[in-house]
Simulated scan of single mutants.
Amino acid sequence: MTQVHAFETVAIHAGQEPDSSTGAVVVPIYQTSTYQQDGVGVLRGGYEYSRAGNPTRTALEECLAALEGSTYASAFASGLAAEDAVVRAVCAPGDHILIPDDPYGGSLRLFTRVLQRWGLSASPVSLSDLDAVRAAIRPETRLIWCETPTNPLLRVPDIAGLAGVAAEAGALLAVDNTFASPYLQQPLALGADIVVHSTTKYIGGHSDVVGGAAIVRDAELAEHIQFHQYAAGAIAGPFDAWLTLRGLKTLGVRMDRHCDNAERIAAALDAHSAVSQVLYPGLPSHPGHEIARKQMRRFGGMISFRLAGGEQAALDLCAGTRIFTLAESLGGVESLIEHPARMTHASAAGTALEVPADLVRISVGIENADDLITDLIGALG
């Protein structure tokens, strides 16, 4: 799209022109593994083999890049596949990265149990403390890996501040933008070098597809990531790309409803005697509230909260809801509830990074807000 349009318009049209041969308004699913060549090495449309490129995946990548304010995106088989490719494209054995001190459990497992054997070292640090980040940087630090808001403690590191620290050190800043989605936050515009998504979550939005994406500002870095993707083969298949692209079309309207519902639920939880603390950036009491106001459009659909009754109260709540489904993942149209210490973040158990046992995380869906509040408050007792 040559003209600059609003987010919702770009989400529906970027990379998605009507099919030139049939006029189909929706991008077709190019369910093919290979492509006829017009001569030896003469490719029609640049496609030769679907590990290297597929028109459905290209449409998704063009749309994702446009929504994050870039021109370079790669769609992967999962968010962790994108994360792995980014780290391997940026780093080499012997390099060092900084990670959040409350990282997503899958990221922690990748950094400490997979990439460590490859020769990469990773140090956790509070990314909300820029002085602590500066102090943790080493001569071999190549990458700062940021989540904001973080999973599951909903901390809100300052992206622009971290970008400045990274630049001072000659390192790159990668931001996992999964919780916010490109609708609520655009890290590249704030100075980040790399954005990663689990497109399984808000971008797909319907709990029916697994995928990931990496979006970057620099053409050379994009080429390195694409090479790692091609060499290792962690691509988004055409049907998965099609489902994800379908989800992108409604991202803006869904995120507005997620945020509307979450703001009401956070207020209700904050007023309940069984809840000792609500972790939601939209609450003025949240320590990252002002940063979130500065770098996010709204505050998102994820809420974590601690129960005054401890771990057993958290487990009872997870078992007691009827509309909130006990399940891992997030970002779908349906509301989910989980116990991070025993579910998504079990890989951190027994370490300095383990999450509180009394913590509950909810992904607020787009159901009726009154129904959701009644469900939660009723289960709290």
Score class of each variant (00 low, 15 high):
D256I: 01
A231L: 12
Y230V: 02
K249V: 14
Q226R: 13
G237K: 08
Q229S: 03
F227L: 14
L243K: 11
Q226L: 02
R257V: 11
D256G: 00
V253A: 00
Q226W: 13
V216T: 04
P238R: 03
V216W: 07
W242S: 06
C259F: 00
L245S: 11
E263S: 01
A241E: 04
D256L: 02
C259Q: 08
T244P: 12
H228K: 09
V216Y: 09
E263Q: 08
L221H: 08
I235D: 05
T250H: 13
L243F: 10
A241H: 04
N261Y: 07
H224L: 12
P238L: 06
D240W: 14
G252F: 01
G252N: 02
K249I: 14
L245P: 09
L248C: 00
G237T: 10
W242K: 07
D218V: 03
F227T: 15
H258S: 01
F239C: 01
R246D: 15
D218Q: 06
A236S: 10
R254D: 15
D218Y: 07
R257N: 08
W242I: 05
A222C: 02
L243D: 06
L221C: 04
A219T: 03
W242P: 10
V216N: 04
Y230W: 15
V253W: 11
G237M: 08
E220I: 09
G237Q: 11
G237V: 06
Q226I: 01
G247C: 02
V253Y: 11
L251Q: 10
C259A: 00
A262I: 09
V216I: 01
E223S: 09
A222I: 02
C259V: 06
V216A: 00
L251N: 06
I235A: 00
A222T: 02
L251S: 03
A232I: 14
D256R: 03
L243W: 13
A234R: 14
T244E: 10
A231M: 14
G237F: 07
L245N: 12
A236E: 08
E263K: 03
R217A: 02
I235M: 04
I225F: 09
R246G: 12
Q229H: 11
E220F: 11
A222D: 07
I225T: 03
I235P: 10
M255F: 13
R257Q: 13
L221D: 12
V253M: 04
T250K: 11
L248N: 01
R246L: 14
E223I: 05
A219K: 06
A231E: 15
A222Y: 13
F227I: 15
C259Y: 02
G233V: 06
G247M: 04
R246I: 14
E223G: 06
D240S: 13
E263H: 06
R257I: 13
D218A: 00
I225R: 05
H224W: 14
E223F: 11
P238F: 09
L221A: 02
G247N: 04
P238K: 03
G252P: 03
V253N: 04
E223W: 13
N261H: 06
Q229K: 14
F239Q: 08
Y230I: 06
